[in-house]
């Protein structure tokens, strides 16, 4: 069946070997919490606005554990099938990231039976089962977006039982100690009708994320983009002022990610004004008055 799914000269694009430690500066106790939770096999819930470094944090921590990491991006059936092409047993350490969306069902995570040409019916693990079976880290991004049965599915994995039932197969998987389940969500733009149930929330150790403190953020922007420190400083200062307008007129502030974009554009030789306009102003508002006032603010930091 491998022939069917993957040609000789193809590799699954979802699989990336990370050889260098991902850049992450801890801003609080999150690294300690992660380490302790990992040791005690406790699941993690990461809360925070978009672009503040949640995914990066998970990768950095996962890498730290074994100094090597394979990143696997999984998605629905394709993810299930492609996950099959990865030889998980041989991976020393891997991280399966599943971006959740409203069509993602429990079966997509657990796995299902497939009819193959030569072997007849065969069970194929889903990404969560893979992680549980071979002891990887499974990261369910934006968990609230998934269907309700997904949140129920992880209940048995996240309490003292720590088992994953494969209902269709009639078996359960007991993960090795190196397995960890991490979920994330952004409380900012969840509607009241789309929230995690307390029974789900209370199964996790929660870490609150926010944009990093000013000096850390400057360092992050500088490091990620390779720009001058002065520019990083101005960008961060402007970004932080703009964040003050959240709920005052903006739904979401400027993320660290966008600041890095702006700095990267400048480092690539794009004029400062253009870079700032395309990464700090245009992506976050369509309102003309708001746009002008953001430009006014950026002017103060000599960015325009």
């Amino acid at each position: 069946m491998d022939d069917l799914l993957l040609k000789e000269n193809e590799t699954a694009i979802e699989e990336t070997d990370i050889l260098e430690e991902p850049y992450y500066i801890p801003v609080g106790n999150e690294a300690r919490l992660f380490a302790a939770a990992y040791k005690r096999k406790l699941p993690l819930l990461l809360k925070g606005p978009t672009g503040c470094g949640k995914t990066r944090f998970v990768e950095a921590m996962a890498f730290k554990l074994n100094k090597v990491l394979t990143r696997i991006q999984a998605d629905r059936t394709a993810g299930v099938v492609r996950a099959e092409t990865v030889d998980f047993a041989k991976k020393k350490s891997f991280l399966v990231t599943v971006p959740c969306h409203e069509d993602l069902t429990a079966n997509d995570l657990v796995g299902r039976f497939f009819l193959t040409m030569d072997q007849g019916v065969r069970w194929i693990d889903g990404p969560l089962t893979k992680a549980a079976r071979y002891g990887g880290i499974c990261y369910l991004d934006e968990i609230v977006e998934a269907r309700k049965d997904v949140t129920v599915l992880i209940h048995s994995l996240t309490d003292y039982r720590r088992i994953l039932p494969l209902v269709k197969k009639g078996t359960t998987v007991t993960p090795p100690p190196s397995f960890m389940l991490i979920v994330s969500y952004n409380p900012g733009y969840q509607s009241a009708l789309k929230d995690l149930k307390p029974s789900t929330k209370q199964r996790f150790v929660a870490i609150d994320f926010d944009y990093p403190p000013e000096n850390v953020e400057i360092e992050v922007v500088r490091h990620e983009s390779g720009c001058q420190e002065g520019l990083a400083r101005s960008l961060v200062a402007a970004g932080r002022k703009i964040r003050g307008l959240k709920s005052q007129g903006l739904t979401e502030g400027v993320s660290t990610r966008l600041l890095v974009y702006a700095a990267s554009l400048v480092a690539e030789g794009v004029p400062k004004e253009d870079a700032v306009l395309s990464s700090l102003v245009s992506p976050i508002t369509d309102d003309e008055q708001m746009r002008l006032s953001l430009i006014d603010v950026c002017k103060g930091f000599d960015l325009m």
Partner: peptide
């Protein structure tokens, strides 16, 4: 525009 401006500052 200026209301946003002073609120940002």
């Amino acid at each position: 525009r200026f209301t946003y401006f002073v609120q940002a500052l």
